[in-house]
Amino acid sequence: MNIFRLSGDVCHLVAIIILFLKIWRSKSCAGISGKSQLLFALVFTTRYLDLFTAFISIYNTVMKVVFLVLAYATVSLIYFRFRKSYDSESDSFRVEFLLVPVAGLSFLENYSFTPLEILWTFSIYLESVAILPQLFMITKTGEAESITTHYLFFLGLYRTLYLANWVWRYHEEGFFDQIAVVSGVVQTIFYCDFFYLYFTRVLRGSGKMTLP
């Protein structure tokens, strides 16, 4: 465990909690892509199957369980409890365009051709693109509430910090995970445009982020 990894995990947790509380307290999921949240629930489910096969640490187990529970709780708020506020018309990204290539790639490019490994690889690839329905929704409606942008900021920062973690681990431990690193770089690139808008628009004032 190093400082980049720990702060990355904290940012990830903060992001998920921000989103959950935003929906819970406003009793509305307006502006939130249910499809992105479903994809993240799928990411955690396929990646954390190792909860049943390998014990790493209390920290590891607790975080995995918390991420899983919060992911499904968020999905259920969007699709059940507050579904009247769900803007399904704006959430029109075709997820099959992500799921099919990601599933295909995880069969082709993995560390070993076993069910658990393929699902782990699938989760890594899927995570790198899972935010696209949310970004697409913001582009389509042309705006995002500032609380939603804070969620996206912490979610983007999490994988960016993991990149620093991987550089650290490579130097300190000689550990290099090609699949995770390449996917992590791709994932971070998707946030670059958002980061720019976040710093130039959200943090300098206006309540909402509006697109040019």
Binding site: R5, D9, H12, D50, A54, I56, S57, N60, M63, K64, F67, W120, Y162, N165, R169, E173, F175, D177, A180
Partner: peptide, 10 residues
Amino acid sequence: SSDPVRHDEL
């Protein structure tokens, strides 16, 4: 094997 390291990351 790098497996334990990978399963360590979230």
